[in-house]
């Protein structure tokens, strides 16, 4: 049974994309196992960070939760309701409670709509504004919430900077009072000095509105800053999940250790005294993940068993779990 404060439960989620070949008759020659058995839950008011290198399945996980792509197998429960098999129409009321903020603040806003229309559209679609006055008031309060000025309502997206466009996207996501917002690399495209503004905004909104976030990013420093718990993904799997403090103080999985070692710290003194342990190789194809432990082709601690036996996720207590044979007992 799930705790009452669990907003989202994901169990053994799989999303496989068929790979087709053949010029005349398209037939399936394989599949990309974008998400291949992912389980986690998210509690109300918390931020779960999802990190990993490109192609490891972060965005696909987010889209599958929102049912914007088909789930191959597994279960997604939102506020206690199993939505795994819901179609578009049954998802409608759910989508009010679950929103997404995208990476690309340039591509994700309709260039021909005014800011007020972009932010207010979800209200109209879901019939949430009783009349014009209520609609205008709601749009004004949403703009205010994300730090945009009232007179910006009548302008078009191209008149805004990247950081401001991201604020517009956040205001739109907030329009229907969601419980959960999935943020897919929401600051990656922004300049360094603007990232902090948007990160702070996410945190303020969470405190004010009690929001729950899944925060997807490849920048571990940003994820650590904003998340309460962090799940590390590699080739379609979660390899380690832990409260933020523990994950950074004592990463258990060799891949987590490698990721942390790869991130330079903005301080030359610290860097000079830091051991430089850089792992070799690149992420293998998700079409043909290595047998056994998927990380074994790059793991500095690889053992014989790793090449053939797929390690399962083991609970390490204190909210930590790791999938690695080093912790078999």
């Amino acid at each position: 049974m799930s705790a009452p404060d669990t907003v989202l439960e994901v169990k053994d989620l799989k999303v496989h994309f068929p790979v087709l070949a053949g010029a005349v008759v398209r037939r399936q020659v394989g599949s990309v196992k974008a998400v291949d058995g992912v389980s986690f839950d998210v509690r109300r008011g918390e931020t779960l960070g999802l990190v990993g290198e490109s192609g490891c399945g972060k965005s696909t996980t987010g889209l599958a939760i929102l049912k914007m792509i088909d789930i191959t197998s597994g279960e997604v429960k939102f506020e206690g309701e199993n939505i795994s098999s819901y179609d578009r129409s049954r998802m409608r009321p759910i989508r009010r409670r679950m929103q997404m903020v995208y990476q690309d603040p340039f591509g994700s806003l309709n260039p021909r709509m005014k800011v007020s229309e972009i932010v207010g559209e979800p209200l109209e679609v879901h019939g949430m504004a009783s009349d014009r006055a209520a609609y205008d008031a709601r749009v004004a309060s949403l703009l205010d919430m994300v730090g945009l000025l009232p007179d910006m309502a009548d302008r078009y997206p191209h008149e805004f900077s990247g950081g401001q466009r991201q604020r517009i996207g956040i205001a739109r996501a907030l329009a229907l009072d969601p419980a959960l917002i999935i943020c897919d690399e929401p600051v990656s495209a922004l300049d360094v000095s603007i990232q902090a503004q948007v990160v702070n905004l996410f945190q303020e909104l969470q405190e004010r509105l009690g929001l729950t976030y899944i925060f997807i990013a490849h920048d571990l420093a940003v994820v650590r800053h904003i998340s309460h718990r962090i799940a590390v993904m590699y080739l379609g799997r979660i390899v380690e999940i832990a409260p933020r403090g523990e994950l950074y103080a004592k990463p258990l999985h060799p891949y987590t250790q490698a990721l942390l070692a790869a991130i330079p710290i903005p301080d030359p003194e610290v860097e000079a005294s830091r051991p430089q342990q850089i792992i070799t190789g690149e992420v293998p194809s998700a079409m043909r993940p290595p047998p056994g432990c998927r990380f074994h082709t790059r793991c500095p601690k690889v053992m014989e068993v790793c090449r053939s036996v797929d390690p399962s996720m083991r609970d390490r207590g204190g909210g930590r779990a790791v999938a690695c044979h080093l912790y078999d007992t």
Binding site: V192, S193, I194, Q195, A196, Q197, V199, N200, Q203, L220, A221, V222, R224, H225, R244, G245, Y248, L260, I263, I265, P266, D267, V270
Partner: peptide
């Protein structure tokens, strides 16, 4: 304004 891996997390960043 940049978060650092070697510092206490959770404090507010100071943006420009």
């Amino acid at each position: 304004s940049v978060p650092r891996l070697d510092q206490e997390a959770g404090s507010r960043l100071v943006p420009i």
